[in-house]
């Protein structure tokens, strides 16, 4: 908040999809500022537009109206300047490339030198704890390892921002806990700004410096919670502390206030 310009700034962002059943209001009047180095989680029930908003930041969707600036320029320009790494719900590794080959993909596209590529691949493999797996093919790795490789791929070209769309949604609880812990360490070490979509309250509270609570029909932000938990690595046991419970409670109330779970 130190007066510096926010790295992501949304003002009055609206997005309407035209579908066969008529227009769908995916995002309505979304306003948000994200500062450099923040870990921002987007939480809400399905259909609340959290993924859509992340895709807008990545310029994979274009808002119908409103202004969305990423690193001071439009989201589209920021995409062209390769400002972010994106981690999808599925690892999406190319089956014909080895793990190292997959991580090298963005580096090849972005014309890094051969020596630089090799160095960066080694570096990020170490960062996600996959040393020695570079020569394996994706199908030889477990789901959790594949997702770690996809995070390494997003980190390899050292973009300032990391956007993650429910990256651990398909993994089991134990693997998920471990990866959450590692992700926090990684964030602390790399000082990146992270946008993280999830529908798990504990995951959002455990990871984030800021929790953005969203609600559906139309997709909008109902609450932005600044976490009082320490920045940087947090032990998993922090989830049993009263502070943690209090934030989780506030998130839950935010979700209810938005009639999130009406059926």
């Amino acid at each position: 908040m130190m007066g510096a310009a926010p790295i992501i700034e949304a003002q009055g962002v609206d997005l309407v999809f035209q579908t066969a059943d008529g227009p769908v209001h995916a995002l309505k009047d979304v306003n948000l500022k994200v500062n450099k180095g923040d870990f921002v989680s987007f939480i809400g029930p399905s259909g609340c537009g959290k993924t859509t908003f992340l895709r807008c930041i990545a310029a994979l969707e274009t808002p119908t109206s409103g202004s969305l600036k990423v690193r001071g320029v439009s989201a589209e320009e920021a995409r062209k300047a390769r400002s972010y790494g994106y981690v999808f719900q599925a690892a999406g590794l190319f089956p014909w490339r080895t793990i190292a080959g997959n991580i090298r993909l963005p580096l090849e596209i972005m014309d890094f030198t051969r020596a630089d590529r090799a160095r960066r691949v080694e570096e990020v493999l170490k960062l996600v704890d996959l040393e020695g797996f570079g020569k394996k093919y994706p199908w030889q790795l477990s789901g959790g390892m594949q997702q770690r490789a996809s995070i390494a791929r997003a980190l390899s070209f050292d973009a300032e921002i990391l956007l993650m769309d429910e990256p651990f949604g398909a993994l089991d609880e134990i693997v998920r806990d471990k990866l959450n812990e590692e992700l926090l360490k990684l964030w602390h070490r790399t000082q990146k700004t992270i946008g993280f979509v999830t529908h798990s309250i504990p995951e959002a509270v455990y990871l984030s410096t800021h929790i953005v609570v969203m609600s559906p029909r139309p997709g909008r932000i109902t609450d932005v919670i600044e976490s009082p938990l320490p920045r940087g690595p947090r032990p998993l046991e922090i989830r049993d502390t009263p502070e943690f419970m209090a934030i989780a409670q506030r998130v839950r109330e935010g979700l209810h206030a938005g009639h999130a779970y009406e059926v």
């Binding site: 994979l60 995409r79 999808f88 190319f94 993909l105």
Partner: peptide
């Protein structure tokens, strides 16, 4: 996969 390539421009 196509979105991924888009994110790399």
């Amino acid at each position: 996969q196509l979105d991924l390539m888009r994110t790399y421009n």
